[in-house]
C-alpha cells in the first residue's frame, strides 16, 4: 500500500498564495502589533499652540522665613492663565497668569485673614496678582522667563526659572503640557513692609501649571 504524503498545500493552505502576499501580510501584522505594544513612533515636530491653564491640576505655592528660624509655606488657590507655547522656538512663547491673592491659604484662617488685610496683600483693594511675560530665553535645558509681575498695586520686572516638565496625551482626551516655575522676590519691593523683623522679606514662589489646548 502506498501511502501518499499529504499535500503540502493541504497542510499549509495559505502556502498556495503568492509569495508577495505573505511578505506584505507579515509586515502589516508586525506593524499593527508594534502599534499596540511597542514604543511610540517618533513624534512629528510639535507645533505651537495656545494653551489654557487647568486650575485643578495647577498650583501656586510660596515659602517665606518665619522668625528667621524656619520656612512657612502657603498657597493661592485661584489660578488662571494662558500660554502660547512654541516647543520648537520657546523664545517665541508668551505667558499670562493671574491668581487671586484673597485665596491665600497658609493652613491658619486667622493668619490668612491678616495676610488679606492692609498689612500685607490688601486683597480688597488689590485682589489680583498678575504676570505677563515680556521675554523668554533659553537657559540650559530650562527657560528664563522675564515679565511684569503686578502684586499689591506694584508692577516690577522679574525673571522666573521655568522648566517644561513634559507633554502627554490625556486619557480624558487632548494633549496636556506642564511647566514648573521658580521665582524669588522681595515683598518689600511690592510695598509690603509690615513686620519685616518677624516675617522674612524674601519670598520664593513656586508655580506648577498643567495646560490643555484652548
Amino acid at each position: 500500500m502506498v501511502v501518499r504524503a499529504p499535500s503540502r498545500h493541504r497542510l499549509l493552505p495559505v502556502m498556495h498564495l503568492p509569495r508577495h502576499f505573505l511578505v506584505t501580510g507579515l509586515v502589516a501584522s508586525l506593524g499593527v502589533a508594534l502599534a499596540f505594544v511597542g514604543p511610540s513612533p517618533a513624534p512629528e515636530q510639535a507645533k505651537a499652540a495656545d494653551l489654557v491653564v487647568d486650575a485643578v491640576h495647577s498650583h501656586v505655592g510660596f515659602r517665606i522665613k518665619h522668625l528667621n528660624a524656619s520656612w512657612a509655606h502657603g498657597r493661592f488657590d485661584a489660578l488662571a492663565g494662558t500660554i502660547h507655547w512654541d516647543p520648537a522656538a520657546p523664545e517665541k512663547s508668551t505667558v499670562e497668569l493671574t491668581f487671586d491673592v484673597g485665596s491665600v491659604d497658609t493652613n491658619s484662617p486667622d493668619r490668612d485673614k491678616h495676610l488679606r488685610g492692609s498689612d500685607f496683600f490688601d486683597a480688597e483693594q488689590f485682589p489680583k496678582a498678575t504676570f505677563k511675560s515680556t521675554k523668554i530665553a533659553k537657559k540650559g535645558t530650562a527657560l528664563a522667563v522675564t515679565g511684569d509681575f503686578t502684586l499689591h498695586g506694584v508692577t516690577k520686572s522679574v525673571t522666573a526659572d521655568v522648566e517644561h516638565v513634559g507633554t502627554a496625551d490625556s486619557p480624558m482626551g487632548g494633549e496636556v503640557t506642564g511647566f514648573s516655575a521658580h521665582l524669588a522676590l522681595k515683598r518689600s519691593d511690592f510695598g509690603m513692609k509690615s513686620v519685616l523683623d518677624l516675617i522674612g522679606d524674601e519670598v520664593t514662589l513656586v508655580v506648577d501649571v498643567e495646560c490643555g489646548k484652548k
Binding site: S118, D122, Q125, H152, G153, V154, G191, K193
Partner: peptide, 13 residues
C-alpha cells in the same frame, strides 16, 4: 519705610 509715589507701575492703596 516709604512714601509711595503713584506712577505707571504703582497704584497706591
Amino acid at each position: 519705610g516709604e512714601f509711595a509715589v503713584p506712577s505707571a507701575s504703582r497704584v497706591l492703596a
